[in-house]
């Protein structure tokens, strides 16, 4: 039995004429890492802001750990995080930023060791005495995560926590988040990187124009991708094209801009996995070597595109820059 950390029903929020959230239902279970993804203006940041108590929904109900949130900024101490960047003060050092925040919460006195421990967890202990003004975006993100972890929240709400992180920093943040979840904390985060979400999240919620178009396990999202485009590089491109023409339920993709188009030697086909298996078998039988084979768009991304109706040309699911 999994207890609910976040339970939203019919959440609606508008900013003037713009409807940011339109009847959103959401369940996030305790101890889960839950991802929010969606194109620009989908409502991810608005939803995260509601979880943090920055605003109230115009309609609908929101419960956090079973307690109904009935006014803005009335959330529990157990909820922490950030939206729209980690919110740090550049004239203060990393340690001073955390110490000042801890002091604000009444936790600072005599607990500088806790601050250093948090800095160590996010890999910033060595630069603890440096002003944050000189930090890279990735370092700020990690420090923001450390700030959110002050007081050991049970629900962590993070907007694009991996934004600007190098691979090592990303691994570190992933490790911190998975450790938190293992310890029973709940994490709700947004990301524009489907591969990040796939590596980190138990479940994802896909938002489009303020509505939920998918919510569930990541593996289930991949199944929503439908027929995928596959790119093949073979030893005999012409021969491979002829074989592909003869393969049932498989079509060649032509005249469509894709990374494969830049390469005359590559063949792009579309069809169910069974047909692709058939094509591979036929190519082997025809003594044509397969040098590369992979989906043009990864399955999760393809699912994203399919569910949100986003065009392939604008398929980069980038950072949500609006609410």
């Amino acid at each position: 039995m999994q207890p609910t950390a976040v339970r939203a029903r019919g959440l609606t929020k508008a900013f003037g004429d713009v409807i940011a959230l339109d009847g959103v239902d959401l369940d996030v279970f305790a101890g889960q890492i839950h991802g929010l993804v969606g194109p620009n203006g989908a409502g991810k940041t608005t939803l995260l802001g509601l979880l943090l108590g920055l605003a109230m929904a115009d309609d609908g109900t929101l419960e956090i750990f079973g307690t109904r949130v009935d006014r803005a900024l009335a959330g529990s101490w157990n909820v922490a995080g950030f939206v729209d960047g980690p919110g740090l003060y550049p004239t203060l050092t990393a340690r001073q930023n955390l110490a000042a925040l801890a002091s604000l919460r009444g936790e600072a006195e005599g607990r500088s060791a806790d601050v250093d421990e948090l800095l160590d967890r996010v890999g910033l202990l060595e630069v603890a005495a440096d002003p944050v003004g000189g930090f890279s975006l990735g370092m700020r993100q990690r420090l923001g995560l450390a700030a959110a972890l002050l007081g050991e929240p049970r629900l962590l709400v993070l907007d694009e926590p991996a934004n600007g992180l190098d691979p090592a920093g990303k691994r570190q943040v992933h490790r911190v988040l998975t450790d938190l979840a293992d310890a029973g904390a709940t994490v709700v985060l947004s990301s524009h990187r489907m591969d990040d979400l796939a590596a980190l999240c138990d479940e994802v919620t896909l938002l489009s124009a303020g509505r939920i178009v998918f919510s569930g396990p990541v593996r289930k999202l991949a199944a929503e991708s439908g027929e995928l485009d596959y790119r093949l590089v073979t030893s005999d491109p012409e021969g491979a094209r002829r074989v592909a023409d003869d393969t049932p339920a498989l079509s060649q993709v032509a005249g469509r801009r894709s990374p494969a188009q830049a390469d005359d030697q590559a063949l792009v086909v579309r069809g169910p996995e069974e047909s692709l298996d058939g094509l591979v078998a036929r190519l082997v039988a025809a003594d044509i070597a397969i040098r590369e084979l992979g989906p043009v768009v990864p399955p999760l991304e393809a699912a994203f595109l399919a569910l949100t109706g986003t065009d392939i040309d604008s398929s980069t699911v980038d950072e949500e820059s609006t609410r």
């Binding site: 339970r7 529990s76 101490w77 604000l104």
Partner: peptide, 20 residues
Amino acid sequence: MTVSTVEAPVQRRPVALRRG
């Protein structure tokens, strides 16, 4: 999947003026 709720957390009071 069965859904239940965990114990309600204490509502958070604003930070004291002195600390702010």
